[in-house]
Design a protein around this nucleic acid. Structure first.
Lengths: 155, 155
DNA sequence: TTAAAATATTTAGCATGCTAACTAATTTGG
DNA sequence: CCAAATTAGTTAGCATGCTAAATATTTTAA
């Protein structure tokens, strides 16, 4: 071990920590949701479709998930093949596909939400509302700074 | 938009936020470090090798980066091919490869550290030390909970 | 009104994480 | 002392993010 203080050597440890915690959280949730047969991108998309309301477009969903369209396309194709969702072409604007749960999809959502409620209590255990809020706020500020940095660099 | 409150529908938004912020931060840093020719896994590994001290093993490095060995192997192979590092077999334990910078690698590190110092001030702008600390602490707790969850589920 | 720009989606292929299964070397226990 | 377990590392191949480029449709503007 070097005797240089960690923060001086590393400088960007927070970003690495972010990635590590994200990977571990994702894995924890995956393990818990796996028995239902959903991967993280799939169940996340399902939750967001329900949140946005059935009939949302793929573009709306991608924006809300913070994903690029191609990343989402793959996941939606899987959900369609599993007969969880349907993609219907909008009658007004034929470029858009609007998203709906199948009957089976609705039933799966009930199971999924119940399972996720359980996980949530365990994942946020020992974290006060205040702490969770601080965490979320800090992340928002970090995100904003990063976005600014990217834009500046692209000038 | 549904009229259901966000947190009730989503329940795990924090985990999604974590992923999103991580992707954006990573992109910001990549954009800034790109002119030097380093990708995020490469410069992160370089910084950690310097932090751990030259002569560290790949296993030590993987543990500190929070990565699995195969993920690291790929990156180290690239760094070796770019003649940034050397991997020398340990004379005592011939299973271990120990990591050293080349002369060129040392010079690159000087540039890299200077660049990263600049980025850091911008990325952490508007975040008080207290906030940064809260963020880091919250992430640690989250990580711990997630690890517990995974272990419980594997019983 | 029609050519050009914009928008929604897809496809193809890269980057970087992972697990599973392998080799080689070392350590341990009977 | 040797067979079995452990440890360090690799290879192969999957998962899920991305960008670039293609298609189809709609909107804008000369």
């Amino acid at each position: 071990m070097s005797d240089t203080p960690f923060h001086e050597t590393l400088d960007l440890s927070l970003c690495g920590q972010l990635g590590r915690v994200h990977r571990i959280c994702r894995q924890a949730i995956s393990v818990a949701v796996e028995p239902l047969g959903f991967t993280q991108p799939r169940w996340t998309a399902m939750m967001y479709i329900q949140h946005l309301g059935e009939g949302c477009t793929q573009h709306e969903l991608a924006t809300n998930l913070g994903l690029e369209m191609p990343s989402l396309t793959r996941t939606l194709k899987q959900l369609e093949q599993s007969e969880i969702i349907e993609r219907r072409v909008d009658s007004q604007d034929k470029r858009c596909r609007r998203l709906y749960f199948t009957e089976q999809g609705h039933q799966q959502m009930l199971l999924l939400r119940a399972r996720i409620a359980e996980i949530k209590t365990q994942l946020y255990r020992n974290l006060s509302d205040e702490q969770l809020n601080g965490l979320a706020q800090g992340l928002i500020q970090l995100e904003e700074n990063a976005l600014n940095l990217i834009q500046e660099d692209q000038l």
